[in-house]
Design a protein around this nucleic acid. Structure first.
Lengths: 148, 148
DNA sequence: ATAATTGCAAAGTCTTTGCAGTTTG
DNA sequence: CAAACTGCAAAGACTTTGCAATTAT
């Protein structure tokens, strides 16, 4: 199925006049297999280079860029340092604990009310996913029962 | 009163064993005067160097770091590229339009409900201010009737 | 005096770019 | 074949760091 998913993604490139190359196939495969794992460019490079040692990092970035142009890949900043890349299929939000670094994924719908309020009041249409939200996870905040 | 504000801030450094130097005074002044303007490190450097040409950028960063340690300064990432620094006094959230770059400030309270929901469900205590939220501003989203 | 701060130059991290050669459709 | 993609090396933006000299307390 990862194959089917990969092909679907590659098709987006193809239908945009893009060309399907070994490298692109490898990057997409790595993304599909790593999905929900939020891959850094570095991890992606390592993963791709395991099978295609000569692939240069700039090519990884360029491929990610092309995939982003076509709308199938996006990146998120979880904190300082590198971004993580992921398929756009799953729209979730990231919460990153500033104490222990844990990343919690929460459904995007949680932001629906907020987005509506902000839209009503400011006309601003929030798409909160590009950046993580920082804070403290249940453990570090000492929430045994997880209630405020 | 910017002087009073500056002194209050410098006191935080002092009471932490820090020393008050010309440079630190200049940085704090620039921050106070630029408050609500969200200064980049570069702008801060330029501003400080107007009066003290020999101040090195690394010193600006180190001063910001010290001020952050003491809790009076924080920085926010509005998008790719540099962060903006601001005094911690005003707790607001930044919305950045991905189309035109406009930065909208909204009161932190808007996030109260969301924070509560997330806390209830995940025990995670959100502090959303470190990153901006991206989206499209009223103008770019075509909200003619939006209350601005 | 002595511990903190500074300037400088250099390095570090993450990402982009120019170019010439290679490959895809 | 023409356009798109690739590797390489180099640069770019932003920030951090080691060190010796300076300065605040």
């Amino acid at each position: 199925m990862t194959t089917a998913a990969s092909e679907r993604i590659l098709d987006r490139l193809r239908s945009d006049g893009g060309r399907i190359t070994t490298v692109r196939r490898a990057v997409v495969t790595a993304l599909v297999e790593a999905d929900d794992h939020h891959v850094t460019a570095e991890a992606l490079a390592t993963s791709v280079q395991a099978r295609h040692p000569d692939v240069h990092r700039s090519t990884i970035y360029r491929t990610l860029d092309s995939l982003a142009d076509v709308g199938v890949v996006d990146h998120v900043h979880l904190g300082h340092g590198g971004a993580v890349y992921h398929l756009t299929e799953d729209a979730h939000q990231h919460l990153v604990c500033t104490d222990c670094g844990t990343v919690v994924q929460v459904p995007g719908e949680l932001f629906h009310d907020l987005a509506e309020q902000v839209c009503d009041a400011y006309g601003f249409e929030i798409d909160p996913r590009h950046f993580a939200m920082l804070g403290r996870c249940a453990h570090c905040a000492g929430h045994a029962a997880a209630t405020i």
